[in-house]
Simulated assay, not measured.
Amino acid sequence: MKDMNEGYVQNLAPQFFMPELPLMQSFGGCPQQVQERIEAASPILWVDPSSAANRLRSAIEALMDHEGIPRRWSTNGKKYDINLHKRIERFKKEKKDFAKVADLLLAVKWIGNVGSHGSVIRIHDVLDAIEILDRVIQQLYDTSAAMTEKKAEDIIARKGMPASHITELPPPPF
């Protein structure tokens, strides 16, 4: 490295973090199996982004399990596996209110597929998948907005009085 006055600057790139950096700040009411798989991607992200992407794909499998989308079906006594893509399509069909969530899940699945099949995947790609998966979890399991709205309704009903000072709320005047 030359002196900075000569025009050279040393750039450092992290290769490992101990303890690992969390990939998400909040999981809301996210199922434990999904959360564990996402957290399993964190310690390996910087050393093996493809494996981290694969773990995110596994998180989607766990999410589909939690949402009741089967992994197998049977007909005439034969059992057939349902691939993740078909499971996400079924989720989209059965849970029409979450059609956009299904599209987000497909994006993460594709990144996970690339990581699973030995192709080179960049850390940036995995971080994109995390950002998308974070949005999925917010839409499916985060109840903080509803809880905040409920708190506001309670405060309005109490007319700002602390809840500990009110034994019974009077009926509304209308």
Rank of each mutant, 00 (worst) to 15 (best):
S58F: 08
A40H: 15
S51Y: 11
L56D: 02
G68T: 03
I60C: 05
R55D: 11
L84C: 06
Q33F: 10
C30G: 01
H85C: 00
N83L: 04
A52I: 12
L45M: 05
E39A: 09
E36D: 15
S58W: 04
Q32T: 13
I44V: 15
A52C: 15
G68F: 03
A53G: 13
S74I: 01
S42C: 13
M64D: 06
P49M: 04
Q35W: 07
G29C: 07
P49W: 08
A62E: 11
P49F: 01
K79M: 07
I44F: 13
A62P: 08
H66L: 10
E61G: 13
L45S: 01
Q32F: 10
S26K: 08
M64V: 10
N83M: 04
S26W: 05
M64E: 07
S26R: 10
R71V: 04
I60F: 09
Q32I: 14
I44D: 12
L63C: 00
W46S: 02
F27E: 01
S74E: 13
A59I: 01
S50E: 11
K79T: 10
Q33C: 11
N83V: 09
S51R: 13
Q33K: 09
R57V: 03
E61F: 13
Y80F: 14
A59C: 04
G68Y: 05
W73T: 11
A41K: 02
G29F: 07
E36V: 11
E61N: 15
K79P: 06
C30W: 10
L63A: 00
E67I: 12
G77Y: 06
N54V: 02
D65G: 03
V47Q: 15
V34P: 06
L63H: 00
N54M: 09
S50V: 07
I38A: 01
P70S: 07
D65Y: 06
C30D: 05
I60Q: 02
F27L: 11
M64P: 08
E61I: 14
R55T: 06
I38S: 02
L63W: 00
K79G: 06
A59R: 04
V47E: 15
F27H: 07
G68I: 02
I44R: 13
A53V: 09
K78M: 04
S58E: 10
S58Y: 08
P70A: 03
R72P: 03
P31W: 09
N54G: 11
Y80G: 08
A40I: 11
N76T: 00
D65Q: 06
S51K: 12
L45K: 00
G29D: 12
E39V: 10
L45D: 03
G29V: 08
I82R: 05
A40M: 15
G28C: 12
A53D: 07
G29M: 11
A40Y: 14
E61H: 14
V34I: 07
E61R: 12
L63P: 00
R72D: 05
S51Q: 13
I44P: 14
G28I: 14
I69W: 03
D48P: 05
I38Y: 06
G68Q: 00
L84I: 02
L84E: 04
I60W: 04
D48L: 10
G29A: 12
H85G: 03
S51C: 14
A40W: 14
N54D: 08
Q35C: 02
